[in-house]
Structures are given as structure tokens and as C-alpha cells.
Amino acid sequence: MSKQYRILGVIISLAIGLAILPIKLTSEDLHSGNLFLAARTIRYTFTAGILAFLLHLYLNRTIFAARWIMVEYILRIIVIALIICLTSIVVDAIFNKFVKESSFTIAKEDLNWYLVILRCLLVSTVQFFVVFYLQLVEESQRRRLEIEKLNRSQLEANLSNLKEQMNPHFLFNTLNTLSAITNDVKVKDYVSEIANVYRYMLIHNKLNLVLLESELSFINSYLYIIKTRFGNSLNINIRIDESILPTKIPPLSLQLLLENAIKHNVASLDSPLAIDVYNDSENIIVSNSLLPKKTNYHSTGVGLNNLLNRYQLLFKQDIIIEQNTAVFSVKLPIIKS
């Protein structure tokens, strides 16, 4: 819990302690003045209210299984009530050892065990709900911030793609015209795959998740275009188990990794760039042979950072980036619904 909520909790604790543990003053007590009030406040308000707040704050960091959660909460309230009860008795005993004035001693009714335990249970119960409420407020704020961060990340991705796209209607009309005026089968196939790529980007890019099967179908169209350009300079091998095809993945994730591999490495007939897309039991892995281009080009890392942020926000998981002298690889966690 953040510092501001801890401070607020302490203030509320003091207020609750004063409210539910009233100090009963007699005419003789009034002659004791503020010292008497301070003594009783220290003994009850501090030891009961503050201690109960801090203990609930500490214990509420962990939660047991959902089916036992109510039992756990009740046990916490009882245990903390016993702790603050014993602590109050110890503090009172120490106080009475040094203060002999009868005006400052505990009234007889306060020594009633039932009354003492009842007060401690009441303090513990109220403080439990105070801590629970403050944690709910903090969690709500944290989720709002995560949603805003995800929206910003998605907006940046959309803007980036929009900058690279032509007007979709003009583009598809042009592709249809080109396909109609040519008799070359290869050209028709190339145009068809381009249309598939842009259609996928326009439809799915606004979504947070897509089926891995749909993403791989898109990748096949994307790779057809890339292979047409690079030919045998690229050696791309995709081996994905059918069992994970129904799982979901952020759209364009695989395309981004393939594009990065091609952009940052040399691909030639003498030294073909090898790219492997496969999976193990936990991850989808995209790896490529490391043949860095000898240019002054400096990568900003925006693409990988964007992908990392999306996995953290959507799944609370990190992608794993590994590199050695020969291979660069990125592992995307398999998300099983």
C-alpha cells in the first residue's frame, strides 16, 4: 500500500480509537487535565487502533484459496483482536507500574475481560474493513492506470500502422485493378497475398487478441511477399503444434518479430538468413541467425518495447529476449484460456 494510504489509515485509526473507546471522565478526573486524557489515549487508541491497522495491513498482503477466504478473514480479525488485547494489557501494566496516582489508573470496569475482549474485537473488525477499503481503492486506481497505459500503447501502435498504410479503399481498388489487367499467375498470387495482409491489418489491428491460427495464416501471406523479394536469401521454417492453434496472441506479434529479424540482419544467397518459428510447452519462439548489418543504423527498440508492454498489461507476463554470438530469439508466453 502506498505511503498516502498508510498515513490516511493511521489518521482513521486514531479517529476510530477515540470514537469506539470513549474516555469516561468524572469530576475528579477533570482535575487531572490533559495528562489524564493523553494517558488513556496512549493506552487504548494507540495500542488498539494503530496496532490493529498495521497488523491487518501486513496480513492482507496474502490471500488463501477462494473457498476459505471468509474463514481466513474471520480468523484474522480474531487473532489480531487477541494480539491487541494482550498488548494493551502489557502496556497498561507497565503504565501502572510507573504511575501510582489513582486518577491515571484503569477503571475497574475496564478490567472486565469480556469488555476488554469485546472492545478489541470491535477495533479489529473496524480496522479490517478500513484496510480492505483502502486496498480496494488503491487496486482500482492501479487498474485504471494500467488500462490507460494499455490504451496509450494501442494508440501508438495504431498511429504507427496508419502512417505506413495507404488509404484502404484506394489500395484495394488498385489491387483489384492490377489483378484484373494481368494474366500472369504469379502477379495475381502476389496481389492476392498483399490484399490478405492489408485486410488482416485493417480488421485485426484494433483488437487486443486474435487466435494464433489467424495470426499464422496472416504470417503465411506476409512471408509470401517477403520471399518474393528475397528469394533464397531467406530460409524460414514454421513448426507450430496444432494443439496451441486455439490459443490467443496480440495481433501482429509474430510479424513484428519477423520484420525485426529481416531489418537488422544481412540476407544473401551466400549467407541466407535462417528464421525459425516454433513452440515448446510454455512459449512460442521466434529465433534467427545473427548476421547484423554493418551500417550506422541504430534501432530504437520501440517495436519490442511495445510488444513487451502489451504482454505485461494483457497477461501480467514478460516476453523473454535471448541472444548469443550466433542466435537471437524472442519467447512469447503461450496464453491458455
Rank of each mutant, 00 (worst) to 15 (best):
T26R: 07
E28S: 11
E28Y: 10
S32P: 00
L35F: 11
L37T: 11
A39S: 14
R40P: 01
I42S: 08
R43V: 11
T45D: 08
I50T: 02
L51G: 04
L51K: 03
A52Q: 03
L54M: 12
H56G: 05
R61I: 01
T62H: 13
I63R: 10
A65M: 05
A66I: 14
E72G: 01
L75Q: 08
L75T: 12
I78E: 08
A81L: 01
I83P: 03
I83K: 04
S88F: 01
N96G: 14
V99K: 03
V99P: 02
K100E: 14
N112Q: 09
Y114K: 14
Y114D: 09
I117T: 06
R119H: 09
V126N: 00
V126C: 11
V131A: 05
V131D: 08
F132E: 15
Y133T: 15
L136H: 14
V137D: 05
V137G: 03
E139W: 08
S140E: 12
R142A: 12
R143E: 15
I147F: 08
E148M: 11
L155G: 00
A157L: 13
L159K: 11
S160H: 11
N167D: 14
P168T: 03
N173G: 03
T174V: 03
L175S: 04
V185D: 10
V187Q: 12
D189I: 13
Y190H: 04
R199Y: 06
M201I: 15
L207C: 12
V210Q: 04
L211V: 06
L212Y: 03
S214Q: 15
S214A: 15
E215R: 04
L223F: 02
Y224V: 06
Y224M: 05
G231L: 08
I236K: 07
R239N: 14
D241K: 15
I244A: 09
L254G: 05
Q255N: 13
L258A: 08
A261V: 02
I262F: 03
I262V: 14
N265L: 01
V266G: 02
A267P: 04
L273C: 07
A274D: 04
I275D: 11
V277P: 00
S281L: 10
I284K: 05
I285L: 02
I285T: 11
I285H: 02
V286H: 07
V286T: 06
V286S: 02
S289W: 04
K294D: 12
T300S: 15
V302L: 15
G303D: 08
N305E: 15
N305L: 12
Y311P: 01
D318L: 13
T325H: 14
T325A: 13
V327W: 07
F328I: 00
S329R: 10
K331D: 00
